[in-house]
Write a protein that binds this DNA or RNA. Structure first.
Lengths: 183, 183
DNA sequence: CTCGTTTGTGCAACTAGTTGCACAAACCCG
DNA sequence: CGGGTTTGTGCAACTAGTTGCACAAACGAG
């Protein structure tokens, strides 16, 4: 049950409309908590009903459709409560590792191309993160909030680095495997 | 839609009953595709209905309740198909990173204890993986299937190593932070 | 031998996330 | 100025995963 809290965080960082939130989920928050616009609108409705957020009063109420939301004190309190509460890590689910294990049994036919594709995706993601790091965390800035956000970004960078390296190793392993394994 | 394929893989490695599968998910497959016994029984039913697996004919059909399943050719074919098919990585969702980002906004009060707890969990998991590696992959064995399975285990080991290190860094960062951050 | 515990199988209801579609307003192009 | 694209909001139906419970057989201790 974290989507509402992801949204509260995003709205505290900056009040936004549904679509703006969607975009920010695509670029930033979504790197570790992805959501579609449908999910977001649904959740905005619930959060408003619960009195955690409210639509910003707009000057021309009827003209443009764009509704921006801001967090109310109750919402901030709920987010603080949730952040501090102890939570168990959610179970991992990784299809690629599963497929690799399956391929030890049914043969490696066909999986190699997809490993390459994933390697490429992870490389791109890594490049994107490094771009963000360069832009948002130049050496020297160290306000506490920056340090926390940087820490989060570094987790992303290091995870992508790991996958990139691991996939490279895996592909090397494939090069040495007798053709198409058991099956 | 990977649970059925996780089960097929497990059953190909060794025909099992529902409960045996559940245990194996807790110890091994579940490290990257966790499932509860309820999910497993439900899925066994579907797989049997689809003709992908069948209950092993048992000598005393009525006495002990334990039903073991084995994979049928159609099931193996389906698994091979799925393994080879190109798949997009599923979106990440990591609550801890989300909470850390939230704590940059609402304050770090209370989260540190949970970081410690997670660090401890990851250390244990890492130790468990290393135990398995020592037991199942002593230097010198390199049948192709072993190498693939070892690769998968290494991913687990390296991921836990990453989290352990990252959490250690994070906690250090906390030590240097002015008390309880913004809020 | 019987009564509590563990083993083993399973259903039902709920929650979270995904997919597919609808529809109005704004904008922009010929 | 009329018609296609983009922006923005949202509902409905479905799929996957979680939680809570039920119940029978086997096992083990007093």
């Amino acid at each position: 049950m974290s989507l509402p809290h992801a949204i509260l965080t995003a709205l505290l960082e900056k009040p936004s409309s549904g679509l703006e939130l969607t975009r920010r989920f695509d670029r930033s928050i979504g790197y570790f908590w992805s959501a579609t616009h449908q999910q977001i609108y649904r959740e905005l409705g619930k959060l408003e009903a619960d009195g955690h957020i409210r639509a910003l009063p707009t000057e021309q109420p009827a003209r443009g459709q764009k509704k921006s939301y801001e967090v109310l004190p109750a919402g901030r309190a709920e987010l603080a409560r949730w952040t501090a509460a102890s939570q168990d890590p959610r179970p991992h689910r990784d299809t690629l590792l599963l497929r690799l294990r399956a391929s030890a049994v049914v043969g490696t036919e066909g999986i190699e191309a997809d490993l390459r594709r994933h390697l490429d995706l992870h490389r791109r993601q890594l490049a994107e993160y490094e771009e963000i790091e360069k832009r948002d965390f130049p050496p020297g800035r160290d306000q506490p909030e920056d340090r926390l956000r940087h820490l989060v970004l570094r987790a992303g960078i290091e995870l992508e680095t790991f996958w990139t390296r691991w996939l490279t190793d895996a592909l090397e392993e494939f090069g040495e495997l007798p053709d198409s394994g058991p099956a």
